[in-house]
């Protein structure tokens, strides 16, 4: 009898190995998912004790969610996030794919180029954003180059001060920072392509573009899917690049209200957070979660359909 109890306990001893990880995971990742929802149903009011904010918030039900849905800045943040995805993800994937193709041509210096293009990927986002702010500023490097070419449009406001160009300018900086990651993924995937296919293609007289379009692109589809998913998650999380480059500005009119042209949802969440509007920030994060779940569901369906 005694030994069987011991055996049964023994089954659970592997949990000892898991326990440190699971403890941190439970406290700082699993529980916060629930806790965030509870916060989203409450609000900090003028009566709240500022020394114990989170235990003294007032219950408001779904008012935070309703408030968000009526605000122009919320809707604009979703649109801006979506535009940011459109500006970064397809261009990033295309550029990575072109770079990977060029690097598999055995050109001289390929190893150096690979490292050089990958490097910005791991550099501190804040610092890279700061340098781009300098490059983009009025009288900065890019403006001076364009002035020499006779283009004066950007001289007064710079690239980040103009609501029409600000989001695209941030996107360009981030595409250049991130494309090395996609590039090495594509290179790894391309190594698995049999060279026979290209020999056959050469015999058929296919051009470089035809080989690119009809052989490489279909064979690296899983990488494209992966980059799309991680790109979408990255855009939902986008914050630091906007914090350092634009602070959500410049302002513009949208649906009769002034909104920050680059105030994407991640930045709006931070704004609500700094205003101590924690309930609204948590509610916003739940909208983001729903969006991410839909994306991963589509992804899962897509992968499942293909494997059947």
């Amino acid at each position: 009898m005694k030994s069987s109890l011991r055996d049964r306990l023994k089954k659970f001893t592997p949990f000892l190995w898991l326990s440190p990880f699971l403890l941190v995971f439970a406290v700082f990742l699993a529980y916060p998912m629930v806790y965030s929802f509870l916060i989203s149903l409450r609000k900090v009011t003028w009566q709240t004790d500022l020394n114990a904010v989170f235990s003294d918030m007032r219950w408001v039900g779904f008012a935070n969610y309703r408030e968000l849905l009526t605000r122009a800045d919320f809707w604009w943040s979703l649109i801006a996030t979506f535009l940011y995805m459109l500006l970064t993800i397809p261009t990033g994937i295309f550029l990575s794919l072109v770079l990977a193709t060029l690097l598999t041509e055995n050109l001289p210096g390929s190893r150096f180029f690979r490292s050089a293009i990958f490097l910005p990927n791991i550099l501190d986002m804040l610092v890279i954003g700061l340098v781009w702010k300098l490059i983009y500023s009025p009288d900065g490097l890019l403006d001076k180059v364009l002035m020499k070419a006779g283009i004066e449009y950007f001289h007064t406001k710079g690239f980040l001060g103009n609501p029409l160009t600000a989001l695209a300018a941030v996107a360009l900086a981030m595409v250049l920072k991130g494309c090395g990651f996609g590039m090495v993924l594509f290179m790894t995937a391309m190594k698995n392509i049999s060279p026979n296919i290209f020999e056959a293609a050469d015999l058929d007289g296919m051009t470089w573009w035809q080989k690119f379009r009809y052989i490489r692109v279909p064979l690296v589809k899983p990488v494209i899917l992966f980059l799309t998913i991680t790109g979408i998650l990255g855009c939902l999380n986008a914050f630091t690049e906007f914090f350092i480059m634009t602070e959500g500005n410049p302002v513009m009119l949208f649906a009769g209200e002034t909104v920050g042209a680059t105030r994407v949802s991640g930045y709006l969440l931070f704004t609500r957070f700094t205003e101590m509007n924690y309930g609204s920030a948590a509610a916003l994060s739940y909208f983001l979660l729903i969006f991410a779940l839909i994306v991963s569901y589509i992804n899962w369906r897509f992968l499942r359909d293909k494997s059947v």
Partner: peptide
């Protein structure tokens, strides 16, 4: 599966935990 959750979601509740 938890890798699919955007990190921004954890900011407010983690901050709340840290203050407490």
């Amino acid at each position: 599966a938890s890798m699919m959750v955007p990190g921004m979601i954890f900011m407010v509740p983690q901050f709340a935990l840290i203050t407490q």
